[in-house]
Design a protein around this nucleic acid. Structure first.
Lengths: 349, 349
DNA sequence: CACCTGTATGAAATCGGTTTCATACCACCA
DNA sequence: TGGTGGTATGAAACCGATTTCATACAGGTG
């Protein structure tokens, strides 16, 4: 007599169906070629009757597959991350994988910790939105046949698929647009670049662009950490002479929000006193009217998970870089201004 | 000779340290009472040298604990959900649990599917932001000693901890505030209530309140599904005579955003033509200036995970309901208006 | 009839840990 | 000297699946 407080095992099913564990196992893994119809039905009934569900743990132990995919994201509060999660989750679910979600908070130590945990759970694959610091652990993971796909950010020395975007191109596109709109003093505001490839590439692109266009003197890069430094940077930027059409270009939606709030608190109005553009495209950009460089994060999550599932399915083609398209979404925060037009240019009466 | 492409096992460690698997296992589970200092050191070194990490799969198989906690959320794109995830993740990480995140999309069938999957992964506990329909499966899970904590939404007949808020009270607080501000025609806009307890409670509270205050005639409840029906509802509400101070009360941040956009597209301005208030408190409410009923979702996530961890730690006290405080955050979208004041009351020149 | 082949099934080993039970050693005591 | 008890360790069973290998039976062939 089985009691219902214990999960049924394959042995219970075997007994109920009057066959051996082996046969049940064959049924479970769809090796039905040599199973008699009669037997098949009996097993089917036993499983239904017992509400049997095979244990992934036991399964994975022998088969060395857990059907778990780990994903380490840098900041779970960021809408960019959320969209990625949704994309990855959709794909994983479709292929019967489950997602172990970890939030590194952009902290390399926490990230390392999570890599260990995920390894202990025998994840089949890992989607990595990395801080960029844990190269050696990732290489070791890879050597143990755990598939890795990098998302958005690169890790030097890793020869794996990467799904991201062309940051240099996107930065140039945004800046070209701003210049066309008449802005000649642009501040790029980002979290500290640290070892994060995306941020580094964007800052480099920004610096090249403003140098090429001769506006580097009025176009600073601010690496801000914490609210106080943001306030100081914004204040300094807005006070800098000579007054001319200024715009703030933020590196992601979290900073965008903070920067916009700071501006508001300092008494500046968007776009009357300062233009705004940002990487990422949070859903609220629509209602506030912020021009953005949208990188379909959902698509990135989908693509990364797709690549991982393909690798797990035996795809051994060369590691590749996949770029999702960046799209400039023009909204009210970057109106056309006369070149060199000064601050307070169109504040409504 | 072990090759580095195979993960080291406890047997490898035992061999390297010159002891038995048993002793290593004791070391791993901190039963160090009877381990000689010399032995302890040798094991420690072997583990370090091999980069050994015990397999949770193998561990869990015998010990019947996976150190996995499942969480099924209704909508991963909702900032409310994100905040919950962050809270739950923080707690789980602290207690060395990992989070299996599933997104039901408010679809009972998908939810059921996920419950099965999580069961197959032998989760130790489940945090459930439920569609409300899968009571029997949850009861079965519970019978198998999987701890369940409900989040935000109730499931009838389940005797487990629930972390949520006092929806009736919060609804009354918000409506009392609106009435004090002078609004007499309030539309409550929600996704279809279906079997979701939170939504049902709020709608009931809304109906009671408007009846008690004699404003039910001008205060409809809209259960909207899809953008088209939202447009129709908003149009009807704004056109309804007699014109008087109107406000829209949305059931969550996702609908808030949609409704606000619809209003904007219809040419109405917030708050000049219509007041806005909403449940949830997305980060962008600050910059747009939307008054909200904030229910610290992060705290809810933390509390739910805390309860679950406590239960897993052996807490067998009676199932309880935990209410996080709701807080009215007054912002620009609900200015004081003269009672009965009509539409377009303060549109700026 | 002996032999082979294809079909259908089961016994037992295995995965990497934990747990139970046994035991060897030493010190101490009567 | 023999018994007792605490310390330190290991052999083997076990968890619930998969996988390898063996085998029983039916029907066809020379």
């Amino acid at each position: 007599m089985r009691d219902s407080r214990r999960r049924p095992t394959i042995a219970d099913v075997a007994k109920a169906a009057g066959v051996s564990k082996t046969t049940v196992s064959r049924f479970l893994s769809h090796q039905t070629e040599y199973i008699a119809e009669e037997t098949y039905r009996k097993i089917e009934q036993a499983i239904q009757g017992l509400h049997y569900e095979p244990s992934q743990m036991a399964r994975g132990l022998k088969a060395k597959r857990s059907r778990l995919i780990g994903i380490i994201v840098a900041d779970i509060a960021n809408p960019f991350t959320t969209a990625i999660l949704r994309g990855a989750e959709d794909v994983c679910h479709k292929h019967n994988y489950s997602l172990l979600v970890c939030n590194s908070d952009n902290d390399p130590a926490k990230e390392q910790n999570y890599i260990r945990t995920l390894r202990s759970h025998q994840i089949d694959g890992l989607i990595m939105h990395t801080t960029g610091y844990n190269q050696s652990m990732l290489l070791a993971l890879q050597k143990e046949k755990t598939q890795v796909v990098l998302l958005d950010r690169d890790v030097s020395g890793m020869h794996v698929d990467l799904v991201g975007m062309d940051n240099t191109q996107a930065t140039y596109d945004a800046l070209n647009y701003l210049v066309r709109q008449g802005y000649r003093s642009i501040a790029y505001v980002t979290a500290p670049t640290a070892d994060i490839s995306t941020r580094i590439e964007r800052v480099q692109a920004f610096r090249s662009f403003v140098a090429e266009h001769g506006i580097e003197e009025h176009s600073p890069v601010f690496q801000v950490e914490g609210d106080q430094s943001l306030i100081e940077c914004m204040t300094a930027f807005m006070n800098k002479k000579p007054v001319m059409a200024k715009a703030v270009f933020t590196g992601n939606a979290v900073i965008l929000l903070k920067a916009a709030l700071v501006m508001q608190n300092l008494g500046y109005r968007i776009p009357y006193d300062v233009g705004f553009i940002s990487f990422d495209d949070p859903d609220w950009a629509d209602i506030v009217g912020i021009t953005t460089v949208s990188q379909s994060a959902y698509e990135m999550g989908v693509k990364a998970a797709d690549r991982l599932v393909a690798r797990l399915g035996g795809d051994t083609s060369d590691a590749k870089r996949f770029h999702v398209a960046a799209m400039l979404k023009e909204r009210g925060s970057t109106p056309q201004v006369a070149i060199g037009q000064s601050l307070n240019r169109r504040r409504p009466s």
